[in-house]
């Protein structure tokens, strides 16, 4: 019972990470139809930057917030490179994001070296239903929940969010009413940067990251996003949680090496099952 609870709780925190990264995929894809494979890279940036800021003895809280803002900025730079030229086809843009993520691995190694790094987080643990759970994991779940609520408010309630939704649903009509869809794409990339950065910042303390962490993070996030048809933020959260919890259960009962396999199997199953709805979405 105790073990099960621990698996579930740690699954939720990992799932929250996937969901954060996945909603980065969703935000960018909704607005620009680009699958942004720098999403895992941005998470790595977030974790490593927060580590560096903390080592410059910038206080906790401020360092983490700064790291998230900086990854937002990096997301914006990626946007300029990826979709800065008007009329770049989404497939070309996807290849550019792959290139950027490979380039970034070089940057990681140059600046931070190859060893996994764990910035200092909330120490200690809380006893919950007889299981002792790291505080940082609880923080991750809480902060992710807040991020999703803010994201929901942004898209559902604000005028800018409406403009972005409009640009996504009908680019032609959006341009005709004066919406600059490229600018909306830039904003989407910046938001995705902050989401990815946030994922890296909150999880790095309990799950050390290195230059090569981008791919597993991107894969998990992508699987969650595919669960949401690359367009639904809420299903992405569900997908992330399912993936995180099932991954932890598999790792706990069958061994850690099966975890990635479980994620990939789920990705495949979802893609095959959702194939129809995905292509229908594209056709519209």
């Amino acid at each position: 019972m105790n073990a099960l609870l621990i698996y579930v709780v740690s699954g939720i925190t990992i799932g929250a990470t996937y969901a954060l990264i996945g909603s980065g995929f969703v935000v960018v894809h909704r607005v620009t139809h680009v699958v942004n494979f720098t999403q895992g890279t941005l998470a790595v940036f977030g974790g490593l930057i927060s580590y560096s800021l903390l080592s410059f003895s910038i206080p906790h809280g401020l360092a983490e917030v700064l790291a998230v803002l900086l990854t937002g900025l990096i997301g914006l730079v990626f946007a300029f490179v990826t979709i800065g030229k008007r009329g770049t086809p989404p497939l070309t843009a996807l290849l550019i994001t792959l290139g950027l993520s490979i380039l970034s691995e070089g940057i990681f190694v140059t600046i931070w070296g190859q060893a996994p790094i764990a910035p200092e987080g909330l120490g200690g643990a809380t006893v919950l239903l007889g299981a002792s759970i790291e505080n940082q994991r609880l923080l991750t779940a809480g902060i992710s929940a807040i991020a999703f609520i803010l994201l929901g408010i942004f898209f559902g309630r604000t005028y800018l969010g409406k403009g972005m939704t409009a640009a996504a649903s009908n680019p032609r009509a959006a341009a005709l009413v004066g919406i600059d869809s490229r600018r909306m794409g830039f904003i989407a990339f910046a938001i995705a940067g902050m989401l990815g950065g946030l994922a890296g910042v909150v999880t790095a303390p309990f799950s050390p990251i290195s230059f090569s962490s981008d791919l597993p993070l991107a894969l998990g996030g992508f699987a969650a996003a595919v669960f949401g048809g690359l367009s639904s933020p809420w299903l992405t959260v569900v997908g992330g949680l399912v993936l995180g919890i099932s991954g932890q259960l598999v790792a706990g009962y069958f061994g850690g090496s099966y975890q990635t396999v479980a994620a990939l199997v789920m990705l495949l199953v979802v893609m095959i099952a959702r194939h129809k709805s995905l292509s229908a979405e594209e056709a519209k």
Partner: peptide, 24 residues
């Protein structure tokens, strides 16, 4: 001038291709 800036100059268009935004 790109399309979205023409709208800002004061040109508005109603045409079949410019359907309504779904989900709103």
């Amino acid at each position: 001038i790109p399309t979205h800036r023409r709208a800002r100059l004061g040109i508005a268009i109603v045409f079949q291709g410019a359907r309504l935004f779904r989900g709103m």
